[in-house]
Design a binder for these strands. Structure first.
Lengths: 335, 335
DNA sequence: CTGTTAGCGCGTTCAT
DNA sequence: ATGAACGCGCTAACAG
């Protein structure tokens, strides 16, 4: 149905080579230029990318794999990645791994079979084996948000440990001592944030209680259950560090559910400054990740490799975070 | 770099046709089957989809265009669409139109140039011209959530007018009379919901005040500003109908900001039951759209056309909605 | 069941 | 500046 370059030949009487050359930015006689343009318009000609990429080995398309498409965190990254790619003339093939390493691996192969020029991934798997097929086919990969040891890929991330430390120190500076953590030990970022929490406590000379450290999955449910547990125990913490976005959601739901007030009864600090932090009352102080920079930097690193084929050593870009203003932390006066 | 079917030939001594046939599910001698499988494993062979689709005219890939990738509404639909497509053996190419009709049109052409087998779109444009390129190339399109006149496409949606009416009637049944609307007149769904609001009011014999009808864009900002205006006016409404998700977010932020309590000072009912409605306090009663069904039905309709090429008349599927439980509506006793 | 051949739509030599 | 011929990797027809 769709017209091909041969239809343009019939229409113009020119050869395939001439037409192809013009369409790819080459020089042709003005009269031929006009003929070709007229034919293109008339026949609604659009190059067949499959055929083109079969010969050029390029698709001007990059693959993006996220661990969950309906998470606002991923959606926000995708927005910036997509905008930057479009700006550079690239299309984007998005895959949702649905929190499953099996699907993630399939996505990797799917993208490769589609001959993407490069891949940006917010990975679930912590196994470098995931990247072997891409390495074999020499398709560059950039890790976003989460680092994977020995992956041999460029990576854009924040310093999770330091950021978590900053958050907990903020609570400490406001006079809090009994500080709980609801976090995740299921992925890289979660474990780094856990370390940051421990370091902040230790440096301040504060003891940590096992019952105040709730580690689990990166999920609303885990946030909800953990907060309920914390607030129902004999010893309530003064403050809680909610180590990611979904946990903030679940934690706040639990407080509402229990009729516990923030910051009167408990102070909160969160991680990931997405819209909900401003919609709930009081607004929650959070660690802010530079989402736009993260997405854009990932694209830049990737296209550098794609276009320049520089085989330099993997780069690791660490972006800085800051704390947002919020009203979720009370001040405790100490003598 | 990547191995091709010819490498398999070298490895096995078989002909291209035999190998190809086996790889596509055909029958070959057991011994050959073993040979081929061994070679595939050894060489990490993966079919080149570009070459394959060049001859089959099929890509087993469908395009999905959403108006904004970082909206939870779209993300949720994408999750269900993606899962269903994978279940049916299809991949998905997602495009973000960033709320721009220009980008939307480019996305349409981008997908077509990638030879997708079909397209699912949550459209921004209300111009049937958007669909002409797809129609010309005989690529089926399914509209999701928003209908476009004369588009000649299948459509999956809810009855926005009736749903809005149901929401407003709920408020009326709880004794409310002075009911405001914060909604959108920028797209199809917004206008339908506006109509539903008007009908509900009229059927109940209630007057509507112009100052209580706030129409604008589908955005947090519009929700925020409108709610501020409503609550600062001389006449405050008893209740407000927040006609979409972003408007709920903005509206609730404004109430928090003004220290206006819900449902004591004002009752709320919303549209779109996404997570935030449960995180804020009180939880908000909303019209619930069957997101999973919507996504899955869209995929089914599309693949029916793709695989069966049934040229029947366009179908319009209208799914039913319901109200969620919430605590955002007070009861006003009337004598 | 297997192998030979042709061709999908395009970019790219190499002549002219 | 132009055109004829070839090949990218694969599937489909046909003959064996």
């Amino acid at each position: 149905m769709a017209s091909t370059i041969k239809d343009i030949r019939k229409e113009t009487g020119l050869s395939l080579a001439t037409i192809s050359k013009y369409l790819n930015g080459g020089n042709v006689l003005p009269e031929n230029r006009i003929k070709i343009e007229a034919a293109v318009k008339k026949l609604h000609y659009e190059a067949n990318e499959a055929a083109r990429s079969l010969v050029t080995k390029k698709t001007r398309t990059v693959g993006v794999i996220v661990y969950e498409i309906d998470s606002v965190f991923n959606g926000t990254l995708l927005k910036y990645i997509g905008a930057k790619l479009r700006e550079r003339g690239y299309g984007m093939l998005i895959c949702d791994s649905c929190q499953s390493v099996e699907i993630e691996e399939k996505n990797m192969n799917f993208l490769l079979s589609k001959n993407v020029d490069g891949i940006i991934i917010v990975p679930i798997s912590e196994d470098e084996g995931l990247f072997e097929p891409a390495r074999r086919e020499d398709v560059p990969v950039v890790l976003l948000d989460r680092y994977v040891n020995n992956s041999d890929c460029d990576c854009v991330k924040i310093d999770n440990k330091a950021s978590a430390k900053m958050a907990v120190k903020k609570l400490i500076s406001m006079g809090h001592r009994e500080i709980a953590l609801i976090g995740s030990d299921a992925e890289f970022t979660g474990r780094e944030r856990h370390k940051g929490y421990l370091e902040a406590m230790e440096e301040a000379g504060l003891d940590t209680r096992d019952e105040f450290i709730c580690l689990g999955r990166h999920s609303i449910e885990h946030g909800f259950n953990s907060m309920k547990k914390l607030m129902s125990g004999k010893n309530r913490p003064d403050a809680v560090f909610l180590a990611n976005y979904d946990i903030i959601l679940g934690g706040v739901m639990a407080l509402n559910n229990l009729q516990v007030s923030c910051p009167e009864d408990v102070s909160l600090i969160g991680f990931d400054d997405l819209i909900v932090s401003h919609v709930v009352k009081p607004s929650i102080t959070t660690v802010v990740q530079p989402m736009k920079q993260m997405g854009e930097k990932a694209v830049e690193l990737l296209l550098d490799r794609v276009e320049n084929k520089n085989a330099e050593e993997p780069v690791q870009v660490v972006l800085t975070t800051r704390l947002s203003r919020g009203d979720s932390i009370s001040e405790i006066k100490r003598k």
